[in-house]
C-alpha cells in the first residue's frame, strides 16, 4: 500500500521495489538488484521528493 501511495503521488512505479531475499540467495539478490538498476536507469534521475536546497 505504501508503494501504491507513492505511485499515486507521482513517484514512478519502477522506482520503488520490495523484495524478500534470504542471505543464502546470492543469485536472487544479484538478479533483483540488476533488475532494479535497469528499471531505475530507464526512468532517469529522480527529481521528486528530493530536498534540493539548504
Amino acid at each position: 500500500m505504501m508503494g501504491n501511495l507513492l505511485e499515486h503521488m507521482g513517484i514512478e512505479k519502477d522506482r520503488v521495489h520490495f523484495s524478500w531475499i534470504s542471505s543464502a540467495e546470492a543469485t536472487k539478490f544479484v538478479d533483483v538488484v540488476k533488475e532494479i538498476s535497469d528499471k531505475v536507469r530507464a526512468i532517469g534521475p529522480n527529481t521528486k521528493f528530493v530536498k534540493d536546497y539548504i
Partner: peptide, 16 residues
C-alpha cells in the same frame, strides 16, 4: 481517486 489514478506520473506529482 480514479481521477488521479488516470493521470500520468508527472501529472499526479503536479496535482499533489
Amino acid at each position: 481517486v480514479d481521477r488521479i489514478e488516470a493521470m500520468d506520473a508527472d501529472a499526479k506529482w503536479q496535482h499533489f
